[in-house]
Nucleic acid binder design. Structure first.
Length: 478
RNA sequence: GGCGCGUUCGUCUAGUGGUUCAGGACGCUGGCCUCUCACGUCGGUAACACGGGUUCGAAUCCCGUACGCGCUACCA
């Protein structure tokens, strides 16, 4: 049977990585077995749901490449249908009206808690007579609708956890419709999943204990029960549920931090699922191919940002050049930097040598900035170590003199620059490093960078000279 | 409180009764490379929560304990 799965976020915030992973796993099953991946927005909580959140969630899914099938279902638009099903349940005696007020229930609960007795609903309204009910209805008393539990236990096989039995004897006759006529979550999911044809529900572990209730509803309605699979949660470093205080948790934040979608996708897959092979960096196609629900773990996994960073760096390094160029050009355009035709070749070369040093897109952009702009600030430690040394200003000035007397063509050959700097150092009785380090700081503002001779070639004569000048000024003003 | 889920290196995990004094990856760490950084490369580090069983034999099966998490709402 082809799986029809769904992702059903409630639009009360950004797309969380936990939600994203749930979406990914669902998407993978659908794509692997040529089923459908549906999207439903659970916006019944009108207070907390926002348009902006919906936008963010869709954007996050798109960014991760999780395309959905069919039209998006908005739960709030299905109120009438939910009511209709509740009416059926009422008519078939699978549910009953409860006229207890929230206040009454609350005080009963409190009492039960204090006296350490079972605090489940006492079933007052379950025993109401026909006459009482019509009387209450006539008096227009508000009521909620409760599901009548009649079975002793339910049983189902969870795709991830295996056989799962629940003793129903101490479960409440749970509410399925609020007194304002809106359905409660348990009711809405069942109706929507059924109507959407969902036959496999893969969701977070936190719904595991709710599943028996839903199964009861399916049975009462005479609907076929989907398969269920419950994914372990994602935890933060301190092993508690991943939340804002653990740092970045929304897909959007990772995007802003220069993480590539394919890296986050790949990483999230590895959280709780094992491909059954040692290779961990996998393309979307490979993952679809290897994905198996029965290789999903049942242990909660800690979100390891360092490993994500590593994976991302692999994606950066192995990125095809045209893609790298695409990102670079987009950045240039966004920041209004442009190249003269004679610069292009050197710029491409620069891209290649900064690629291996960029662990994120942000790193890449930082390197690009070095190409276009003279250093605005110099690394503080570098200044201490190289600029505050005796005679550095004079040394750079002399170097500037030597370089400025060179022909432009000299900057086209990296090995010539190499020879020149080493010779210059030798003439001043210095180790080459003594010249290279201050020069690097002058050209980039940093203590680390790609090879200095490559850099001189890339920046070419004009930029090299003017940056040395700025550095000399800076040193003289120290 | 009740019910449920879970527990292999710091982290992600492999492992489904013997071929494992537990394999891979990230991290950390030592060397090499070197103008710095990164990459690369060769090494190192470190785990079956605890206690009982079952068995010739247990990380693997069973039972307790501890710890963590979830549900127990007219939240989703």
């Amino acid at each position: 049977m082809k799986p029809i799965v769904r992702f059903a976020p409630s639009p009360t915030g950004f797309l969380h990585v936990g939600g994203a992973r749930t979406a990914i796993f669902n998407w993978l099953i659908a794509r692997k077995l040529h089923g459908k991946f549906l999207l439903r927005i659970e916006d019944t909580d009108r207070q907390r749901s926002t348009e902006e959140s919906i936008r963010q969630i869709l954007e996050g899914l798109n960014w991760l490449g999780l395309n959905w099938d069919d039209d998006i279902v908005f739960q709030s638009a299905r109120n009438d249908r939910h009511k209709e099903v509740v009416e059926d349940l009422l008519a078939n005696d699978h549910a009953y009206r409860c006229f207890c007020t929230p206040e009454e229930l609350e005080s009963k609960r409190l009492y039960a808690e204090q006296h350490k007795i079972n605090k489940r609903y006492d079933g007052t309204c379950r025993k109401l007579s026909r006459e009482q009910i019509s009387e209450f209805l006539e008096r227009k008393m508000p009521f909620s609708v409760r599901f009548k539990i009649e079975e002793q236990k339910t049983e189902f096989t969870d795709l991830i956890h295996g056989r799962h039995q629940t003793d129903l004897t101490d479960m409440d006759d749970f509410i399925i419709q609020r007194s304002d006529g809106t359905p409660v979550y348990q009711m809405a999911v069942v109706v929507d999943d059924h109507d959407m044809g969902v036959n496999l529900v893969l969701r977070g572990d936190d719904h595991l204990s709710n599943t028996p209730k839903q199964i009861l509803l399916y049975k009462a309605l005479g609907w076929s029960i989907p398969q269920f699979g419950h994914l372990p949660l994602i935890l933060g470093k301190d092993k508690t549920r991943l939340s804002k205080r653990h740092g970045a948790t929304s897909v959007q934040e990772f995007r802003n931090n220069g993480i590539l979608p394919e890296a986050l996708f790949n990483f999230l897959c590895l959280l709780g699922w094992n491909p059954g092979q040692e290779q961990e960096k996998m393309s979307r196609e490979e993952i679809i191919d290897l994905f198996e629900v029965n290789r999903i773990n049942h242990t909660p996994a800690v979100f390891d940002e360092q490993k994500l960073a590593w994976l991302n760096s692999r994606y950066m390094v192995e990125m095809p050049f045209d893609q790298l160029l695409f990102h670079a050009e987009k950045w240039c355009k966004d920041n209004q930097y442009s190249l003269r035709p004679d610069e292009e070749e050197r710029f491409m070369f620069y891209l290649k040598i900064i690629q291996v040093r960029s662990k994120t897109l942000t790193d890449l952009y930082d390197f690009l900035k070095i190409y276009f702009d003279s250093p605005q600030i110099y690394d503080e430690k570098g200044v201490q170590k190289y600029f505050k040394k005796e005679g550095v200003s004079e040394l750079l000035k002399k170097l500037r003199g030597t370089l400025s007397s060179l022909d432009d063509l000299h900057f086209d050959a990296i090995d010539k620059l190499d020879g020149l700097i080493r010779q210059f150092a030798a003439e001043h009785n210095l180790a080459a490093a003594k010249v290279i380090h201050p020069l690097r700081l002058a050209l980039t503002g940093r203590t680390e960078s790609p090879g200095i001779f490559e850099l001189m070639h890339i920046l070419h004569k004009d930029k090299v000279i003017s940056r040395i000048d700025s550095a000399v000024d800076y040193i003289n003003n120290l």
